[in-house]
Write a protein that binds this DNA or RNA. Structure first.
Lengths: 348, 348
DNA sequence: TTTATCTGGGCAAACGTGTGCACAGATTAA
DNA sequence: TTAATCTGTGCACACGTTTGCCCAGATAAA
């Protein structure tokens, strides 16, 4: 921007002081006499002095920016996470730069390059569905860039992790479906290499096992693009129904998959929850407005964003290298609604 | 970031050249001989040289960042706008910094201060509901900051405007409701001082007038916070129904108002579209999933973001001061669905 | 041969801050 | 009175780039 702001030099000239005196008076760092300091501060306030962040960053090799890489912004879950991140960054005076990977490994790498080129002090990242190898992130981390994983995490290297209790959420939801009398419960989910997928499948299988139900791997459908392509959800659903032994309930493992599946079931004319039960992970704000009102597992997205940002800033501002890392796991919340309400509570 | 990148100085030392020669060779700007230039470029590529953007910005007084101020990210409309902005910025190599006003005038000012402090090259802004006076933006514009308004625009000063055809959209929707046989059509809308509100009311009134219907100002309810407070929507709805002469259809003027109103009507046990017709401006991705499937006016949000970003970058990169400004108006799209389907087409 | 022009490249200052060092004057200790 | 210490301030360089100006050597013109 071409807007001319007042600089330290201007103040120095006006008060007939050296640059360094002004700088030190403003920072309050060094031995500057009271009268001089007050004079400088008064002048600075009066003329609305704002230090030039670019110059400070160049000098100090920090930028007070944190970079965020996530899949895409319109997704309800991530939109809420962003709000959480911003709420912390705002008070700590960091700027948040958001980039989207659009579930693509290549774009994730580009986003990361762009961010590091722009000088960020730290990175918050949720892996894209295509990402199975984290060496691009590990390399930055090894060079000293503080990193916090959230949501879709990796344990390829040690750092703070912030995630939902995906296993617990999937367990709760599967149990709920079982209690409602559903028996052949399918899961439509993200690629198998993602942490969230593994955990959500683990919870699902755990609930089934505990209930003495068989586990049928053909009921688990992986969408390689996490539902970015509508057709992959369609394929998954039709495979389930064309199998000769269709499910009586579907559990979708993400926001997009949930909405996509619901949409397809309605198009197929399935009656929910009669013909088939339907539920999923979703942070959409008004799931009760759907037909039928949708049973969801909701993640505390805002809190997760907040915590991730707090941990990251703590990492950035730590004087000593941090060696003890935290793994924050947030409970999920099951909201049972009409879409799984068979009104038959079966004992087993 | 503490990551040490290779600098021009490193290249200069390695090749035994001066800094300036290296700089000029890389920029391709000045008289540098072929062999020297090639040598420099080869070395730079080999060692993965990236110019330090902070230093460049400091020197050139531009930052290759554009600032965006909007109400809030989780809103479907704005989330799509952001995607549009990013798609352009990405190819033109600008970074997008998104800030939220949360519909507050004060936070809008803070966001703006933060952005300018951070050095942005241009600004995209959609006014908060509380903003009636644009002098804070005009001041920046007067200082030379390129500004493009989108969505909620102001004509306080001359610049590019990007908006939807709000009047046309409201006209179409009102007409649709009239054709469906609704007669007492209410509008729940944003504060009266906003451009979008005025236009949406104008279209609504125009359709009513043309149909020979009376205009009842008591059917227009303004939500001072644009629906950020759920209670204000509740108040608006209950006032409509408690008036003794309730509406037979409600037209909500924004994403949040639409979802909020629908939610309240359902809680009240109203039958839609029987008791009351319901429709609104909304960019939610799957309105057909609602109960009932929701009639919407959809704005081309992605296109709007794209165009706004293009105009802004054009402004930023223009050599001469621009004096001719454009006003881009995008058509909206009416999607009639069950929530307004009375199945009685009344001639009038 | 001398002078003017061109070509390629280096010097150094600048953008706005931060900071190690030096130094003048005042105070204290010997 | 002299030496040691403390206090407050200024000088100058650094961060990484960019750019106006200058200059050495080569070439062309006179």
């Amino acid at each position: 921007m071409k807007i001319q702001n007042i600089t330290i030099k201007d103040i120095a000239k006006a008060l007939d002081l050296s640059y360094s005196t002004v700088s030190r008076a403003l920072k309050g760092s060094y031995k500057i006499s009271e009268p001089v300091r007050n004079k400088v501060i008064a002048y600075a306030n009066e003329h609305n002095y704002r230090p030039n962040l670019l110059a400070q960053s160049l000098k100090n090799k920090n930028s007070r920016c944190i970079g965020v890489v996530l899949c895409n912004i319109p997704n309800s879950f991530f939109a809420e996470v962003i709000s959480g991140i911003e709420s912390v960054a705002y008070t700590k005076n960091y700027l948040v730069i958001i980039t989207q990977s659009h579930e693509s490994y290549e774009r994730e790498i580009q986003a990361l390059e762009n961010l590091t080129w722009r000088s960020i002090d730290g990175l918050l990242i949720s892996l894209s569905t295509e990402t199975s190898d984290c060496s691009h992130i590990a390399a930055l981390h090894a060079k000293g860039l503080p990193v916090v994983f959230f949501d879709r995490v990796s344990e390829d290297f040690k750092t703070h992790l912030v995630k939902a209790d995906n296993e617990g959420g999937a367990y709760d939801l599967t149990n709920h479906l079982l209690h409602q009398g559903y028996r052949r419960i399918a899961q439509i989910t993200s690629p198998a290499h993602l942490s969230i997928t593994q955990e959500r499948i683990a919870g699902y299988k755990k609930a089934l096992s505990e209930a003495g139900q068989p586990i049928d791997e053909s009921l688990i459908k992986y969408c390689e693009h996490g539902g970015m392509l509508f057709e992959e959800i369609e394929t998954a659903v039709s495979e389930l129904f064309d199998s000769g032994n269709p499910p009586d309930a579907i559990f979708a493992a993400s926001d997009r998959l949930t909405l996509g599946t619901l949409s397809i079931l309605k198009k197929m004319g399935k009656s929910i929850p009669g013909d088939i039960g339907m539920a999923g992970f979703s942070n959409f704000s008004e799931p009760e407005l759907f037909e039928p009102a949708l049973t969801t597992i909701k993640q505390p997205a805002f809190e997760m964003g907040k915590t991730a940002a707090e941990l990251l800033i703590q990492l950035i501002e730590s004087k000593r290298p941090v060696t003890e890392f935290e793994k924050k796991v947030f409970p999920t919340e099951l909201k049972a609604r009409a879409s799984t309400n068979r009104k038959i509570s079966v004992a087993y």
